[in-house]
Write a protein that binds this DNA or RNA. Sequence first.
DNA 1: ATCTGGGGCTGATCTATATCAGCTCAGTAT
DNA 2: ATACTGAGCTGATATAGATCAGCCCCAGAT
Lengths: 242, 242
Amino acid sequence: MDKNIPLIRKLGAFIALSESELSFLASLHKRRRTFAVGSDLVHQGQPDQAAYVLDSGWACSYKLLENGQRQIVDFQIPGDFLGLRSLLLNVSDHGIEPVTDIKVTKICATDFLNALEHTPRLATAVLWAMSCDEATVVERLVDVGRRNSTERVAHFLLELGARLTLVGLGSTDGYACPLTQYLLADALGLSAVHVNRVLRQLREEGMVTFQNGFVDFDNYDQLVNFAGFEQSYMDKAGQLRY
Amino acid sequence: MDKNIPLIRKLGAFIALSESELSFLASLHKRRRTFAVGSDLVHQGQPDQAAYVLDSGWACSYKLLENGQRQIVDFQIPGDFLGLRSLLLNVSDHGIEPVTDIKVTKICATDFLNALEHTPRLATAVLWAMSCDEATVVERLVDVGRRNSTERVAHFLLELGARLTLVGLGSTDGYACPLTQYLLADALGLSAVHVNRVLRQLREEGMVTFQNGFVDFDNYDQLVNFAGFEQSYMDKAGQLRY
DNA sequence: ATCTGGGGCTGATCTATATCAGCTCAGTAT
DNA sequence: ATACTGAGCTGATATAGATCAGCCCCAGAT
């Protein structure tokens, strides 16, 4: 079975998957689609009967306010679910758009609910994946609620690095990052102008450089210390325990 | 079977529970405990093998920062799970403390994981409950990231009201609310001083009055409009669909 | 009957961040 | 070769909300 399918790699890190579970996941993998930047996968408010798994590229989920502002809730990287919550809640309370061109695998509601009933261990794994998602949203809430702009940006870049490292797309040296300063601003509750200033400051202080689509950790330890970054919850999240 | 057990009422709103599922839930209900204000249920960082269901009273989950600040992630009301995430992630990334004296039912990890395997429909219901929790955290993120202090407080009071209404503890007239202005501040990323000012302003403008442990919606429609409150996601969350 | 502490309330001051306005530069379309 | 566009960058100014300092009120403890 192909261990390089991102979803299998991800769920497999939590539970040992049986043959039938693996083959179910692999069968899902047939239904693939491509979305280009600018073409939303899911619109906020749309009654939604499908979720996706992100195979390649980056996406983001966001909420729009009446006044035209938006809050990006989370960025998704390969292996992540897209719109899982809207599948259970019946209506999408958020929109999802690609950050880069992406490839996804579609999961329709009935298949998914069937799978939960017939492969209960898979249900546990999905529950675990959802716990991880929720943990990163909580982390974003703490960023926005209690850290000043500099700590906030620093912490965000570190957390993203840790997530990417788990799927082999980053290290403590840095990572390729297709986000614009505008996206960063929408995620962190700052203005783009201010994000720019903060990035400059972090660069001048020799901690991180985010330029030309790359995040370089110039002084990882100093940055971790400055941002008050606790990665324990991410370490554990990747552990096999069941 | 006693439909007044909060957890059964909650999960039962999502799926029709079978006899065996009901009896499993009822058997859980034997292991009850009481916690007084000031005695934390779960400490941040504690390796944790138990979650709880809140039977009566209010609690809150929070994260502490190094600098002594804290961000309250969510308040829990009767019927909510406490610490479900930390059960899956193995370590608690957050603390939980009672807001009032509370009664809880303990769920230990092994029981829970067993139940997921043997009553798969229950797993789906738990997944759904978790989706609801995540949706409220997302809503808090939007509050903190994109709404000014007045809209933020207004929106929060409305959302809390909607949640309480779902479990029969509130209406569009208002609800009993044991939160202090300090707790509100910690949840909304504001200072207690500012929360006080904002509450006064909302009261003087005739929209809500929060005093003496009661939230009174003086002009519900105006408040909904002012806060840009969308309750669609809550309506749907309570619908039977599976 | 007084003290104490927690919660709520308020004005004065300070500061972090938004907003505005405009610049550079690279890539791309004309 | 020229214009156009989007992203990044910067200084000047405005403002929302934090912080500080201190008040009142009430309930429970001494």
